[in-house]
């Protein structure tokens, strides 16, 4: 029996889709069988981030309304040997085209056969959110170190608790170590302290995310990307491994050492 994990955030633009794509791909790299399920009906993007946009025939709405079978709508990612699949959202419908009950039925069916079902949740707290969390066993709440994103994460965590989500964990995205160091960005402890929630991982800001999204290749496939490394660690934690947080400090350059010498660096 697999696990259904919803990637959510409340606020848009904090990296939900990128996170869903990378966690799913990293789990597939670990030879788990994974389905990526795009629940953002009307604004689908998981297909583009995964580079699978040209292979869509059927979508989520076709599946739940019985137009096709689940297998027909699932796109196999050829980079992985039968271990990574995408179930795309419909682009021409809206969130009301699916009900929470239908989503629950679908994810329950999928986790019979796959190890992980990763659901990419739309922004907001309306029907799309309710659909996306309906069948989930665990929620990963993505936030960035900004007042607006943390505030929305707090609201989402409240809603997840109210809906009795079994497990809620936070992922802090786009941390910029230099800004944290000079006190111009909230750090991990600040955010955890405010939200009082478990941490699943921290992903540093990384230009390679833009490059990999341009190419349609998840960043976890890039061995040199720090964000990719962070996502691979998160995937390992999801499988139950104990993985320490990777150090975010960049290499200390010459000026950095001079500053430390004089006690200016923290």
């Amino acid at each position: 029996m697999g696990e259904v994990i919803v990637v959510t955030s409340g606020k848009g633009g904090v990296g939900k889709t990128t996170t869903a794509a990378n966690i799913g791909t990293a789990l597939a790299l670990m030879e788990r069988r994974v389905v990526l399920l795009d629940a953002d009906i009307g604004l689908r993007n998981l297909d583009v981030v995964m580079g699978l946009e040209n292979r869509i025939v059927y979508d989520l709405v076709d599946v739940v309304t019985g137009v096709c079978r689940v297998k027909q709508a699932m796109i196999k990612d050829k980079r992985f040997n039968e271990s990574l699949f995408l179930l795309p959202a419909a682009q021409t419908k809206d969130k009301t085209a699916v009900t929470p009950e239908q989503m629950k039925k679908l994810t329950t069916e999928l986790k019979e056969e796959y190890d992980y079902v990763i659901v990419d949740c739309p922004a907001g707290i309306e029907q799309g959110f309710k659909n996306a969390i309906a069948g989930a066993d665990r929620a990963v709440v993505v936030t960035t170190p900004e007042v607006s994103a943390v505030r929305d994460a707090d609201r989402i965590i409240g809603l997840l608790e109210a809906s009795e989500m079994p497990e809620v964990q936070l992922m802090i995205n786009r941390i910029r170590p230099k800004m944290v160091k000079r006190g111009d960005m909230m750090d991990i402890d600040d955010i955890i302290d405010i939200l009082a929630v478990d941490l699943i991982g921290v992903v540093p800001e990384d230009d390679k995310i833009v490059v990999s999204t341009n190419r349609g290749e998840p960043t976890v496939l890039d061995a040199n990307s720090k964000a990719g490394q962070a996502y691979r660690n998160i995937a390992r934690r999801i499988t139950g491994e104990q993985v320490p947080l990777m150090p975010l400090e960049e290499e200390v350059g010459f000026m950095g050492r001079v500053k430390q010498l004089f006690g200016f660096g923290r």
């Binding site: 900004e146 007042v147 943390v150 505030r151 006190g183 111009d184 909230m186 750090d187 600040d190 405010i194």
Partner: peptide, 10 residues
């Protein structure tokens, strides 16, 4: 540091 302002506002 602006993070203190952010924390307080939050």
């Amino acid at each position: 540091p602006s993070k203190e302002i952010a924390k307080e506002r939050l």
